[in-house]
């Protein structure tokens, strides 16, 4: 197997005294769905925020192997530039542009490319042919995703007026309009009913197969995670406690403990017990 698309090594994120993510290793590949799961507060979203340029990690390396631009260290880029290298995310609490239509949302996603094609608005103001062509191409791409995600009826509606499930789809369509290599989804099934969740699973598998992009998924809905993931990383208290295929994870004792708690006789899991002296030390 060739080198993975994204290689996270030793990622650590500290907020003052709180270690949210502790020397985490993670890989994501093209054409595969990688899931990150863990109990609430385990540090999953922090990993995402580091990866997509919202936090600058305290330590660690986020290596992206871009087919066109070579190896890029994401942690060294300015936050907004990460998306330009093909790592794009959605948000746990949907962040659309509510007063803009669905179509406009998708065009904003193509901003970087369109801005260049409009020669920073000069060609656009003059209405030159090169710009008109670029706009037509952008519109075609937006139209493709609108149809693909079944948004045709609402394409000209303001995004803020749509129902929750539809807004989720718009957010995924918007992310796909940036032409990503790696799509990072932060709890995409939150707030969806079981039927919508199943449809989302099919959609993600379809996108992965059709466009060969990698998908990195944070999710609490185990039916979705177990159903579509190729590889699962389990995080608890900022550390990775397990990694493997869905079948392996399902059987893993440490994972079960992290989610369901401890039986009475063993008070703390070994991983946590290891940390105890450090955590308790200063307080005592």
């Amino acid at each position: 197997m060739s080198a993975p698309l994204l290689e996270v090594s030793g990622l650590t994120m500290r907020f003052g005294g709180l270690v949210a993510v502790d020397t985490l290793d993670l890989t994501a590949d093209r054409g595969r769905i990688t899931a990150v799961i863990g109990p609430n507060g385990a540090g999953k979203t922090t990993v995402f925020n580091c990866l997509t340029g919202f936090y600058r990690p305290t330590a660690g390396r986020l290596l992206l192997r871009h087919p066109g631009k070579g190896e890029v260290e994401l942690q060294a880029l300015p936050g907004y530039a990460v998306a330009r290298y093909g790592v794009v995310r959605t948000f746990q609490n949907i962040r659309l542009f509510p007063r803009m239509t669905v179509l406009e949302n998708l065009l904003v996603a193509q901003h970087t490319e369109l801005m260049r094609k409009s020669a920073f608005s000069i060609a656009g103001l003059l209405g030159l042919k090169g710009w008109r062509d670029a706009q037509a191409t952008a519109l075609d791409r937006a139209r493709f995703w609108i149809e693909r995600l079944d948004l045709t009826r609402v394409a000209d509606e303001e995004a803020g007026n749509l129902s929750y499930g539809v807004q989720r789809r718009v957010e995924i369509a918007r992310a796909m309009n940036t032409n990503p290599l790696l799509l990072c989804l932060d709890e995409p099934a939150a707030g969806l009913n079981p039927r919508e969740t199943a449809a989302l699973g099919e959609l993600l598998q379809g996108i992965r197969a059709e466009f060969g992009i990698g998908i990195l998924l944070i999710e609490h809905d185990m039916s979705l995670v177990m159903g579509i993931s190729d590889r699962i990383h389990v995080v608890d208290h900022g550390k990775k406690i397990a990694e493997g295929t869905p079948a392996e994870i399902r059987a893993d004792e440490r994972v079960i403990k992290a989610y369901l708690g401890e039986p009475d006789e063993a008070e703390v899991p070994p991983e946590v017990a290891q940390d105890m002296p450090e955590l308790e030390g200063p307080r005592a």
Binding site: F54, G79, Y80, A81, A83, R95, L96, H111, T178
Partner: peptide
């Protein structure tokens, strides 16, 4: 924030 996430 959404703008930043789209490379703007």
């Amino acid at each position: 924030i959404a703008c930043r996430s789209l490379g703007i």
